[in-house]
Design a protein around this nucleic acid. Structure first.
Lengths: 130, 130, 130, 130
DNA sequence: GTGGTCTAGACCACT
DNA sequence: GTGGTCTAGACCACG
């Protein structure tokens, strides 16, 4: 596991987003165990309190659950899990539209730009494949 | 002038973004006077200090300038002004791609979604036209 | 008459300093007439209020005097005039020492630097002589 | 820490100048932690907002940096740090020469005066040593 | 009127 | 604890 933190957003939110993404692409499956708070903090070199905050938030959302002293697990509420992908996509798209609309960019120009950056990004990833 | 503030971002940043957008769509032109700090604060119902902070930041960026105790003006550095539109668009697009990529959404689906939301948004605006 | 205004200091203070310098080098002599407030404002392209403020301040100091509707004149208090040169030099030197002392620069280095910059400045002036 | 504030300059600028001087004489070193805003405000008996303003300005200059909510630190850009001493000295000397030149004081007289005041100042400091 | 600074005190999010 | 933002209200110098 590895997260490229940027400093614009709080770390705990970036951790949550990471888990959501892993769920959206089915790298994390219902009932699957996730690292303990301490492990996570170690792996990501973040403050244990930050890890704790992320997990607590995810529990509140219902994304994960913890029974007794067992490792936390991804929820088995598959409906909720299925929504995550849509939720992430919608959120990203809404943010985008909200940001781009006031600048009055023609739809065509937007689509072209999105396509271009999307493909650039794909190529970058291929270049850094192992 | 009117800004719909959300509480996620600091007000002074939203003010700056607003000015950038107004510049990007050429509602604000090089050398044009902008409202005084007090005036802006009144119009937006924000504290004069918050307006001052936004203006000060815009000065350090080079977006506006102030001579003596005269009202501040939009910079006459047209190169800088021209970049603003591109900068805003790029930033929005990059944020979008960065957010959407890890979810592995096919390009086609993304484009469709963008088109759909864009048009929805357009219609909303028409509905509220006078 | 011509003053190169910088924006760090208030204009009216720069005007006063200019008059003091002209007195210090005896370009302005006791009893000599000086431009009216309006004339000064025109020549320097400054606000008449600013010229007025400078003159008023100079009157308070006793540097100039005005009788009735006559043009203002340089004071005939020669003792005061003689002090101006010393005053300007002392002020400049004190400011310099106050600024340079906390940085713990050896006297030798300071003297060398002053000499160097002084001579550079002399040459610049010669180059722009008419 | 102690700063003798004068009322001519804004407090926050005097704070910045103080930090620059401390850097110039190497009392503050690259990466070194500096007091929190609140602490500084307490020590100097100034408002926390004023301390904040000074620190924010130093950040934009690149003099200090802040990660997360950790105490701010002196930048590790040693090139920038090295320049500060030169910058301070040059600025002081330029101001001095600019002020003294129009009075047409012979170089010799200037040097003598600088020497005299420098030494006076040294003695003053010795007198107040513990 | 303008910009600029400052204080006092509060609140928030993050670690 | 930390940094960051915001409000309310005041004062000053400048033009």
């Amino acid at each position: 596991m590895n997260i490229q933190f940027d400093k614009r957003d709080p770390i705990y939110l970036q951790v949550i987003r990471y888990f959501k993404q892993e769920i959206a692409v089915a790298h994390l499956k219902p009932g699957q165990e996730i690292p303990s708070r301490r492990e996570l903090a170690n792996q990501l070199s973040i403050n244990p309190n930050t890890a704790q905050k992320a997990y607590k938030e995810m529990e509140t959302i219902g994304l994960i659950y913890t029974e007794g002293n067992m490792p936390s697990k991804i929820t088995e509420n598959t409906a909720l899990l299925k929504n995550i992908r849509t939720e992430l996509i919608d959120e990203a798209t809404n943010n985008f539209i909200t940001a781009i609309t006031p600048i009055k960019v023609p739809l065509e120009e937007i689509v072209d730009l999105v396509k271009k950056k999307y493909l650039e990004n794909e190529n970058d990833k291929e270049d850094t494949n192992d």
